[in-house]
Design a protein around this nucleic acid. Structure first.
Length: 494
RNA sequence: GAGUCGCUAGCUCAGUCGGUAGAGCAACUGCCUUUUAAGCAGUGGGUCCGGAGUUCGAUUCUCCGGCGACUCACCA
């Protein structure tokens, strides 16, 4: 980052020059790698000398005069290399000793076991593959204990590449993230789902209540919005006859950054024709619990010191009942916003002047209930007013068939029986537009083409969105979403 | 956006009740042909985040700014 040249960097630049003067390219074009570190270790035999050519980054170095030990780390793991003056000759061994921690080198030799019992490579030759001219943080490790870990969070996020080199936990976390995402794809594909890609730049940002990023298309001379959700496009595909679709990709919301929010985040959305929200509950609990079993070896996971039992079935409780449970307020018997406001303030929740009954209820839910939902819980049957894209219940049209799964007090998704009645949808949009005109800049916008699509007939369907970064947080046991995103958004330096 | 805290060597951190700083690792020079947080001896390395103010003197105190962490707000 910094352009100042420290002594340490200067020393290494001089080494590069010295190498070049000797006719050695410190950045050669390729190398002869025959095995990964782990594969090489597998080659070990007591009765024979198996040959291997490995390559990786030098992570430790112990020079003892005419013999040296170094560890070479690659994508598979790490292997010790034993290099001797006798084997390499004066010139090469001197060169070997000038290698620095962080250099990427190729080593060929035979696999053997040291007196201390570590399977290693006895070097017959080596080659510098890429000179590292910036000193790495000097993290050391013994028996799983890490010494002087790379702890500067800002540097770890800004220079994630260094964090990945030096912090094993970081590497493991992102491998786990990758496996989790692969596992989701596999789970859904097995169920007959098709992965699709829908626009990230949209003329009308829909499908969620959030402020969008605005961008501009020069040739058309129009503003476009980065999507806040793919929902309305995926449902157009359900109209089109794709019966099981999902999209697993980025959403963008122009809002604050916190331990639980990154402006761009990864969302899974899936829609299934001829299904409903109960189908989605089933998918959610089976998918997440089986992924835990597969990736963590258990459905009872430890998150920030709390045991979380992901074993299905998860608890289900209605929005109204859970508020009653934690506050004693029964919103189903409340008829006016004033009454609701009084009830809310009786439990210490103050709502906006012009908030409606169910917005007040939602305030109470967020402030008084959410944090209690530690074990997996489906909060179901939300008020219609809060859910402009979900289908009303048959038995009570003021409520919709919708649920949000909560784990460790955090909403990790949102699902419903999809509203497919174009008349109702139009009315809901009109309601949203009215709220928008009254200053709610997160209310949804009218999307005539979406209504148009529904007017062709959308089969009854269930749909669900799951925030992947938050799910990853749970799986890698971290309190900050930045630890689940390779390059979280930070303010640029200077 | 607000509050609290942090920013000192490449990294991890001490420290200076105001007199321009230290350790471990890393680096450099020796010694060391089975070490593994290798070891032993020696050496070098700092705009103490930036700017202004107070002061004889500021890394230290004050103010402003930068970046980050946490909390809150926002984000269902």
């Amino acid at each position: 980052m910094s352009e100042e040249i420290s002594d340490l960097i200067q020393q290494r630049i001089e080494k590069v020059e010295a190498l070049r003067n000797k006719g050695i390219n410190p950045y050669p074009i390729r190398c002869a790698r025959t095995h990964t570190a782990e594969e090489a270790k597998m080659l070990f035999r007591e009765d024979a000398q198996e040959h291997a050519g490995i390559a990786g980054r030098m992570r430790s170095k112990r020079v003892m005069g005419k013999a040296s030990f170094v560890h070479i780390e690659d994508g598979s793991g790490s292997i010790q290399v034993y290099a001797r003056l006798d084997d390499l000759g004066e010139e090469k061994y001197e060169l070997f000793k000038t290698l620095d921690l962080g250099d990427i080198v190729g080593v060929s030799g035979y696999v053997f076991k040291t007196r201390q019992g570590e399977i290693s490579i006895h070097a017959k030759d080596f080659m510098l593959l890429s000179k590292c001219i910036r000193p790495l943080p000097s993290v050391k490790e013994k028996d799983g204990k890490v010494f002087d870990e790379f702890a500067d969070v800002e540097l770890r996020y800004r220079q994630r590449y260094v964090d990945l080199i030096v912090t094993q936990k970081t590497r493991q976390d992102f491998i786990l993230r990758s496996r989790l995402i692969a596992g989701i794809r596999e789970f859904l594909q097995k169920r007959g789902y098709m992965e699709v890609e829908t626009p990230m730049m949209q003329a009308i940002p829909g499908g969620a209540a959030a402020r969008p990023f605005i961008t501009h298309h020069n040739a058309l001379d129009i503003d476009l919005y980065m999507r806040i959700a793919p929902e309305l496009y995926l449902k157009r595909l359900i109209v089109g006859g794709f019966e099981r679709v999902f999209e697993l990709n980025r959403n963008f919301r122009n809002e604050g950054i916190s331990t639980k929010h990154n402006p761009e985040f990864t969302m899974l959305e899936l829609y299934e024709a001829y299904a409903d929200y109960t189908t989605m509950m089933d998918i959610a609990e089976r998918m997440i619990s089986s992924l835990a079993q597969e990736l963590l070896g258990t459905m009872v996971i430890n998150y920030q010191g709390t045991q979380i039992n992901l074993t299905p079935p998860w608890e289900k409780i209605t929005f109204v009942d859970i508020i009653k449970k934690y506050t004693g307020i029964d919103f189903s018997t409340i008829r006016t916003a004033d009454e609701a406001r009084r009830a809310a303030s009786s439990v210490g929740v103050k709502a906006d002047e012009d908030a409606s009954l169910w917005y007040i209820a939602n305030e109470v839910f967020e402030e008084k209930v959410e944090a209690n939902l530690i074990q997996p819980t489906f909060v179901i049957d939300y008020p219609k007013e809060l859910s402009p894209l979900a289908k009303s219940r048959d038995d009570n049209p003021d409520f919709v068939e919708r649920f949000e799964p909560y784990i460790v007090g955090r909403e990790i998704g949102n699902a419903f029986s999809e509203l497919n009645d174009p008349f109702d949808q139009r009315a809901r949009f009109e309601e949203q537009v009215k709220m928008r005109e009254q200053g709610d800049d997160e209310a949804q916008r009218m999307d005539y083409d979406y209504i148009n699509a529904l007017e062709y007939g959308m089969p009854p369907a269930g749909g669900m969105g799951i925030g992947i970064d938050r799910l990853v947080m749970l799986f890698i046991d971290t309190a900050s979403i930045k630890d689940s995103i390779l390059f979280p958004l930070l303010r640029p330096e200077k």
